[in-house]
Design a protein around this nucleic acid. Structure first.
Lengths: 221, 221
DNA sequence: CCTCTTGTTGTACGATCGTTCAACAACGGA
DNA sequence: TCCGTTGTTGAACGATCGTACAACAAGAGG
């Protein structure tokens, strides 16, 4: 008998690394990028920090992504689509009435995993890159419309049901509600204590209520 | 006669540098820091980029500031106080009625020099640093209250005049208006074309109007 | 004209950055 | 069992980072 079995039992206990399918590894690297952003902010976006977070060598990133900026853009794309997917799921889980759907959307906006200081800080860092990164700009244009369509669709249904003849400017209404949501997120990111999640939902619902009320008025005038 | 006059005329034409008072130089370095932020975003915050922008050698920054982070924090402080000073001046330039003062504040929010894509992008980059920089956090706490006090003061006067007995939650009202303002700024920073300045003012005034109307209702109920 | 103070310069240093690439090794298929 | 593919490693490169510091010189005061 050879000594191979013994040898093998020694060598097979610890493979030095595990090969993965490219798509799996890409997702892992994207997850590590977002985790580094949460932990260290913009300074966490270095190849060495990210590869350490992913438990991987420095060279691997450039094997799956052409360069660092593309990895960051891919992370932003993932972050965006996760958000929209979460909102969509929450809305479809809700009762079919427009009001209930909007409420589900707002409650998803002001609860885990979205209303988290670290998560919100990641958004702010991405937004800060927007102005000077064409890749981030492209991802924004490609994914943000999903969010806008979801929100405008809900507002349309709601106004159609409540006041079919209303002359509310839907574009401005959506802009205002988006701004209110983003602004409250920003405040929560900077100082989480200033308002409670339920108050955030209430502020947004008041905005929509006043929208419907205004629809009344302009329809009657 | 000596050759001095000729020599002097040659040597005095170009002093290799001009000495300045520490406070003047500090302000110049702060201005250069903000300019670099506008031009290059977060990547513009390097000692060499800033010193080049200020027309100064690399070593000078550490002669006037203990380190890079302190310079950035000083720039954030300056940026904040300039904003508050601009708003305060605009409000005091307006007629004395609470409505006119609020309108002046809103119009200052949606016009130069504040409603500029580069300027707004600078805010976003600073906000992105907040979570992981104690210095930025300190400056925020020290300067932001000036902004909040100005805004809450105006809201208080307005509600007091319109409905003295109202039971509106002033804290929540200020939070909502601040969020609306910040959110609209953020949208303008990302996509300046989505709404016109006058529409931004109108959205905020509608918010305040509804606030007063709600004050009515809750006072009558 | 000389001296002293000190604002300013620019090199130098060590650390870290993004990227490259030759060598390695995991593991499915023959 | 061995081979071939290829996911993975880690050293190495040049560039750039923040900071320190010795040398310089501008400008005021005597």
């Amino acid at each position: 008998m050879s000594v191979r079995p013994a040898e093998k039992s020694l060598t097979t206990t610890k493979p030095r690394f595990v090969r993965q399918l490219p798509e799996q590894r890409r997702q892992a690297l994207i997850a590590a990028t977002i985790e580094c952003l949460k932990r260290y902010g913009h300074d966490g976006l270095s190849i060495r920090t990210i590869s350490a977070q992913a438990g991987v060598s420095v060279g691997l990133i450039n094997h799956h992504f052409p360069n660092k900026d593309e990895l960051i853009a891919a992370a932003y794309r993932h972050f965006n689509s996760e958000l929209v997917a979460g909102f969509t799921a929450a809305v479809e889980r809700a009762p079919k009435s427009p009001r209930a759907r909007l409420r589900a959307f707002l409650e998803a906006s002001f609860s885990a995993p979205n209303l988290d200081q670290d998560v919100l800080a990641v958004w702010v860092v991405f937004w800060g890159m927007y102005r000077h990164s064409r890749l981030i700009q492209r991802v924004q244009r490609e994914t943000y419309q999903g969010y806008v369509q979801l929100l405008r669709g809900m507002l349309t249904d709601l106004l159609k049901e409540q006041r079919p003849q209303s002359r509310v400017d839907l574009r401005l209404a959506a802009i205002g509600l988006t701004a209110l949501l983003d602004g409250l997120w920003l405040q929560w990111c900077l100082e989480p204590g200033t308002f409670r999640p339920a108050e955030g939902v209430a502020l947004c619902e008041t905005w929509v209520d006043n929208l419907c009320r205004r629809a009344d008025r302009s329809a009657l005038e």
